[in-house]
Nucleic acid binder design. Structure first.
Length: 478
RNA sequence: GGUGACGUAGCCAAGCUGGUUAAGGCCGUGGUCUGCAAAACCACUACCAUGGGUUCGAGUCCCAUCGUCACCUCCA
């Protein structure tokens, strides 16, 4: 398996720590807002990685965190370490407790994941009745349940001499790590130039890059809702320590893969790595993998503040969740995707065409074509070359292999693609449409094509396209 | 200012361990099929940002230039 390692800055051959086993930590959702289409892209990409590794024979140990504490905002205090806590703020907005906010949005994440056929981190499909209550049994870990581990980790970092404490917080002293900037290659001294308006609310902070491990319940946070006791006083964990603590306490001091968005490279993952070294004396993550962003047509970034579409909005536009999945599955995780409704339309057209072709192949599944399984695995192993996989599908559809074998092979591919190809085209329509269809069939059998065309137009107005095939009428939602 | 990613057809996107005709899809056009359509099938649509260099040979390696984007501040 070859993947792009961010620190190595190239595609590398993956050598797992334990033979035939691979451990993955995926930066998961922060649950105070409805996941947007950009988040979805990331989770679909890593879902494909997960499925691909399973398909290639690895035993996958995967965990995905849910950040439900202490995520701070700097929108109100530019450059400040002491912005509002987003969970708190959203709770105040909605007039409920932070934990209720978290639970509410965890459920919305589960719904989206389920609709998009994204597996739970444990590798199972997400059950229909799964809610926030049982999420940890399926491989998610909630930061709020790891506060003890977080405190223990900070204690170790402190003992190893990487921290200092002020009246307001416990900081990680980045000057203690010579290769702190390994991810970006950017010198800390040069970094300061750009951050001109930095407002150091904490006058005792030594270096602007130093980051909070434990935030005390003082000053602005005197009334902070989520708090825990600690050796440094009541307070809550900093934004980076949760991931370090959860990753290493669940997957071990060293694990194979850590995934996240490219935006995490310079700060979040840089700090996570620093914390791991501060704790264990060595890095914990063997390969850091990062997914690129979605950009709008003007090539500027999508963010949750730009009104990017959520899954329900996309569905309202007439798309199915699998159209979204098709779009994101067919493009490599490192390619910046120009996202647009037109792009989504193209994905939908491709997907429906594929389903139609599969339907024409019949329903008798034969034997998988070994040659094409081999090619499939080669594409997966080649840094998840998903475009190549779709090329193989098209080759197969045009090939002379027995129909059942083509079908079986493509269904085999779908174990990784996760497009629910076996379910075929959604045929759901009501009795009214059904009646119109039978009337049209009758009219055409009687040679009354004018009536047949009228009924076809009528059905079209009700949102379905009628097609006459060798097997009779078939219908498709427009 | 610094750091990084990237520039392939109308659009999306492979190819980048250099080597016959630069994958595949979407859209479009022409045709076959069809009562007419739709679907399907066939055909057509690329001076690989620019300029140098290395090489028998470069989209693919090296250098420069131009351009785009991101990050350095919460974000996938």
């Amino acid at each position: 398996m070859k993947l792009y390692s961010t620190i190595d800055r190239k595609v590398v051959e993956i050598e797992t720590i334990k033979k035939d086993e691979i451990s993955i930590y995926s930066c998961g959702p922060t649950v105070y807002f409805r996941m947007h289409i950009g988040n979805i892209r990331a989770y679909i990409n890593w879902d494909v990685l997960h499925r691909a590794l399973v398909y290639l024979g690895y035993k996958v140990n995967r965990v995905m965190n849910i950040t439900d504490v202490g995520h701070m905002s700097s929108t109100d205090d530019f450059g400040s370490d002491f912005g509002e806590d987003k969970m708190d703020r959203q709770a105040q907005r909605e007039g409920i407790q932070p934990i209720d906010i978290a639970n509410k949005y965890i459920d919305s994440v589960l719904n989206d994941f389920r609709d998009l056929n994204i597996l739970a981190p444990c590798g199972q499909s997400i059950p229909h009745d799964l809610t926030y209550k049982d999420v940890e049994r399926y491989g998610w870990s909630r930061a709020s349940n790891f506060v003890n581990q977080i405190i223990e980790m900070i204690k170790r970092i402190e003992k190893n001499g990487y921290t200092y404490e002020t009246k307001q917080a416990v900081y990680f002293d980045v000057s203690k790590l010579s290769d702190y900037n390994i991810f970006t290659g950017q010198e800390l001294s040069e970094k300061e130039i750009g951050v001109r308006d930095e407002v150091n609310v904490d006058p005792e902070k030594k270096n602007p890059a130093d980051f909070v491990l434990w935030m005390k319940r003082v000053g602005k946070y005197e009334n902070h809702i989520m708090n825990w006791p600690s050796p440094w006083g009541d307070g809550f964990p900093g934004w980076h320590i949760e991931c370090s603590a959860m990753g290493t306490s669940i997957l071990g001091e060293k694990f194979d893969i850590h995934t996240g968005g490219v935006d995490h490279i310079p700060v979040h993952h840089t700090n996570e790595r620093a914390q791991n070294i501060g704790t264990y004396g060595h890095p914990s993550v063997k390969y850091w993998l990062h997914n690129e962003w979605l950009v709008s047509k003007e090539d500027s970034k999508l963010s949750k503040s730009s009104g990017a579409e959520t899954l329900p909005q996309v569905i309202d536009l007439g798309f199915e969740p699998m159209d979204v999945r098709y779009l994101f599955v067919s493009i490599n995780y490192r390619t910046r995707i120009a996202y647009s409704v037109d792009g989504l339309k193209g994905a939908r057209a491709s997907r429906l065409a594929l389903l139609r072709k599969l339907e024409e192949l019949g329903s008798d599944s034969g034997n998988v074509i070994e040659e094409y399984i081999k090619k499939f695995k080669e594409e997966l192993e080649n840094n998840l070359n998903m475009s190549g996989v779709f090329r193989l599908i098209n080759e197969l559809l045009k090939s002379e292999y027995p129909r059942g074998d083509i079908l079986a092979t493509i269904y085999e591919y779908d174990k990784v693609l996760g497009l629910n190809l076996k379910q075929g085209i959604s045929k759901e329509y009501d009795s009214e449409i059904e009646e119109l269809l039978s009337l049209r069939k009758e009219a055409r059998e009687n040679g009354d094509f004018a009536e047949g065309d009228r009924l076809r137009d009528l059905i079209m107005q009700k949102g379905f396209r009628v097609m006459d095939t060798a097997n009779g009428q078939t219908i498709q939602r427009v």
